[in-house]
């Protein structure tokens, strides 16, 4: 039965991917991309990688869909011609060749088995019980620290797209909805639930799947729903409080990492304090990830008068 399930899931995943790149029309491609994100999240569940599935569900099926649909609409309003989203034969063959070769070699060459044993032995010293969190926030904290800053760099790149005279404007398009309408009702209903779910994912991340990234993404998503209904005012890129929110997570992470120097080594989390240190980092990181992702989706500042 497992084989049947796997076959159907893989077929769907491939179909969604091919339809997203092989068909005509940006809108259809985008919808297939959302469907693809859902199937990939399910594949991660099937593989037991719940942490990744959570991230994929929130990013792949959630935020990216919103971002791409907005882009499609913007292109249309700008009068851009509907260019064919048709991957050329050569890149398609090249991609298939690379994927095929990688798969073939990976199946043929015996695997070295990863680092499960080492991670299991070190887990009691890491301060948390979820091995994924131990890897992300302790064993390989330097990677995660850099990754959290990568998000910020991406936001800077998005903001760089604004024109000089637009820097005074709030980010994103001017969002509004009918007062008391369905959209506004939804925007009042979902965020409280989403905040509970997001906070739960962060809090639970120490012992079970979840964590700052997953929780932060959910918080960003429900925040965006509120923003889409015009319930929250969008910030300007030079807003001090928002910049503090963007910087807080990486800053706390950096300071905690540097404080390790006093405790015996860079990015060192002594076992007795590790849990407190990691949770502190995660709380601030969640805030920053949520703020950064939400601002990334909203885009650069835009003038309030539409052309």
């Amino acid at each position: 039965m497992t084989v049947l399930f796997d076959l159907v899931l893989c077929a769907l995943m491939l179909l969604a991917a091919l339809a997203a790149i092989g068909g005509r029309g940006l809108f259809r491609a985008t919808v297939f991309f959302v469907a693809y994100g859902i199937t990939v999240a399910l594949a991660w569940v099937r593989l037991g990688a719940i942490d990744v599935a959570l991230a994929e569900a929130a990013i792949g099926a959630g935020l990216t869909g919103l971002l791409l649909l907005g882009a499609v609409a913007r292109l249309r309003r700008a009068g851009a011609p509907e260019f064919p989203v048709r991957a050329g034969l050569v890149p398609a063959l090249a991609a298939a060749g690379v994927a095929g070769a990688t798969g073939w070699v990976a199946l043929r060459v015996p695997g070295a088995g990863g680092l499960w044993t080492e991670a299991g032995e070190a887990l009691p010293l890491s301060g948390v019980e979820n091995p994924v969190t131990a890897v992300l926030l302790n064993f390989r904290a330097w990677d995660t620290l850099l990754e959290s800053i990568v998000l910020l760099a991406a936001l800077l790149a998005v903001w760089a797209l604004a024109r000089e005279e637009e820097w005074e404007a709030p980010v994103g398009p001017p969002l509004h909805a009918r007062p008391g309408g369905v959209l506004e009702g939804m925007a009042r209903l979902l965020p409280p639930v989403g905040i509970v779910v997001g906070v739960f994912l962060v809090w639970a991340g120490a012992s079970q799947p979840g964590g700052a990234f997953q929780g932060g993404t959910v918080l960003a998503a429900v925040g965006l729903i509120a923003a889409l209904a015009g319930l929250v005012a969008l910030p300007r890129p030079d807003s001090g409080s928002w910049r503090t929110a963007l910087a807080a997570g990486p800053a706390v992470f950096l300071l905690v990492g540097a404080s390790g120097l006093a405790l015996g080594g860079l990015l060192l989390f002594p076992p007795d304090w590790a849990k407190a240190m990691i949770l502190t980092v995660e709380v601030f990181l969640t805030l920053s990830i949520a703020a950064t992702l939400a601002l990334l989706v909203l885009g650069p500042p835009q003038p309030r008068r539409m052309p």
Binding site: A122, R140, A141, W142, G264, G265, L266, F269
Partner: peptide, 13 residues
């Protein structure tokens, strides 16, 4: 050489 977090390879960086 610095072993970040005191872990060292292969687990750490």
């Amino acid at each position: 050489e610095v072993r970040l977090g005191g872990w060292g390879a292969p687990l750490g960086i």
